[in-house]
Computed example of a mutant assay.
Amino acid sequence: MPLSAKDLLSIARDYWRPDKHFNYRPENSPEEEKFLDLWELELKKMDPWRAFLRDLGESLPDFNIGNATATCDACFRCSVYPKAEGKPQPRRWVVVGCLSILAPVYTIYGVQYSGTGGERIVGIFDSLPPEMQAPAEIVAKRMEVTFGVSVLSRELAETPIPLIVEPKEPPNTTLFHALFISQPERVP
């Protein structure tokens, strides 16, 4: 049975605060302590994530696969870049797969780089350009099979929540930010 927005918000409240009462204090908030403890447990499970990345590389031989996980975010992240092989590309892009550590859900999004300054344009969820769709489908299928998770629908992901996930603050914070990452455009 899929989790509802209410269920997911309840989970997010365990790890994110609605206020800044602990900003500039020497101690962490109870929510941050719980988040750090969860990451400590999750980091002990890196072998399955590394195996997933290796398998993904075998399934996508024309792509570079990277581990974009950062423990300040609420997910494991992988990046899938097309191999350039010395050819200039008119548009550079990356497909990103996120596996939440807070709930049994994942999401896929894409980032396009445009212009000479490397400006990044994030296209989240089902609005991926055609060249990103095939690798995104493979990443999605592998996440579902390997980790037994389901995709977080766009509707649920865009649900506003009354929590702060730095640098996002209400009314701009969504379940996507709390369950995955607050700055999806940041891809190494």
Rank of each mutant, 00 (worst) to 15 (best):
L9R: 02
Q133A: 14
P162F: 01
L43F: 05
L36Y: 02
A178V: 02
L152D: 04
I108F: 04
E58D: 12
E155C: 05
P82V: 00
E137S: 08
E85V: 02
Y106D: 08
L128A: 08
L38H: 04
V96W: 01
A103D: 07
A5Q: 13
E58P: 06
S100L: 02
L102S: 03
P82A: 00
I108G: 01
V96D: 03
P188S: 03
S127R: 14
N64S: 12
E131H: 11
G118D: 10
P2W: 00
T116F: 10
Y24I: 03
I124P: 07
E27C: 12
E32V: 06
L152H: 08
N67P: 05
P130F: 14
L179C: 01
I164Y: 08
D55H: 13
P104L: 15
L9F: 01
R17G: 01
N23S: 09
L60Q: 01
N67R: 14
F63M: 04
S114F: 13
A68S: 07
K141R: 14
T116A: 11
P184F: 09
D19K: 08
M143Y: 07
A74M: 07
Y24G: 00
Y113M: 13
S114I: 11
C72R: 11
A140Q: 05
K87P: 14
P82Y: 01
F180I: 06
L43S: 07
I11Q: 04
I161T: 07
K87Q: 12
G110I: 02
E166C: 00
K34Y: 08
E31Y: 09
G123L: 05
P167T: 05
Y109R: 13
G123I: 01
